[in-house]
Design a protein around this nucleic acid. Sequence first.
DNA 1: ACAAACTTTCAATAACTATTGAAAGTTTAA
DNA 2: TTAAACTTTCAATAGTTATTGAAAGTTTGT
Lengths: 167, 167
Amino acid sequence: MEYLEAKEKFISTWGSLGTLWGINKAMAQIQALLFISTKPLSMEDIMGDLKISRGNTSMNLRQLMDWGIVTKVLVSGERKEFFTTEKDVQELARIVAKERSRREIKPVIKVLEEVSSIEDNGSAETKELIKQTKALKELTDDLDILMNKLVDQKQNWLTKSVFKLIK
Amino acid sequence: MEYLEAKEKFISTWGSLGTLWGINKAMAQIQALLFISTKPLSMEDIMGDLKISRGNTSMNLRQLMDWGIVTKVLVSGERKEFFTTEKDVQELARIVAKERSRREIKPVIKVLEEVSSIEDNGSAETKELIKQTKALKELTDDLDILMNKLVDQKQNWLTKSVFKLIK
DNA sequence: ACAAACTTTCAATAACTATTGAAAGTTTAA
DNA sequence: TTAAACTTTCAATAGTTATTGAAAGTTTGT
């Protein structure tokens, strides 16, 4: 496989994986492109390479910056703006985990809490609703805490400590 | 909050959370409804309760059965089919983790493997592509293995062992 | 073998989400 | 202060995915 083919394969796969970590295709592709680039890229570079419009590029770069995954860099002697992404996969995972927890998991936990604490009027239906949402709340809580903790251990958390425990 | 309001809140929240675990709204809502129901429900019951069409109900029930989350049950004296979902959250998490790994993560790992093992022709671009996709491949691999292992420890895995390690 | 009771399929369409591109906005250099 | 170089915004539109509903298919009881 040639460089160009491999690059395209990577970008398109990463793009369609976007949904898995909750972002859209263009956003994931821009991130992928920056991730394997040896130097910061301008908006022109990105538009040209991914064949997407200026507007689309602008909006998705902004979102990536909101996530904290992409940052603007100044290239001296250049007027236009250039962009890079976090290059360290561990750090990338931390950011994504934190953001998804904040944006998606936390709000769900809040609803589960509310629902599971309605008053028990004695009916079987109410009892079941309380029981099941409580169980779901506890699981979601545990997973969220685990995710955040794992991802806080800055270096080598996975291989270092967790694996030996559960092998 | 009354039972009905709580029930609706739970179903709609769980439904919109569907994307988080990679299924569509109707599918997640059907599962939610079954999850808090005290008895198996028929297609009529589900259509009526969620106000969705017969076709939609049929297709999404089928998908839930493909995932292994919902099963048909026979209710004696009844001609129509009834459905229940796995009621244990731990077991539910196991099934979902296994399926997502198989359907989404494994294929991505395969592509990352292919891309990261292209021949190094010495150029900086190629070196970067190899380096970064390799790092991504290793992280994804680790997370996938971790997810599957955690979820294999049938009972209490979370609270029991992992938490004390990383607290 | 028939028909009633039920489920599945799938083409049409509705609903939603992403993308474009041109106009408006901003920054910079002279 | 002007205008060129650049970025952002957003209404229009394209593209994608979900939903409907009616026809076709299946099963069961008589």
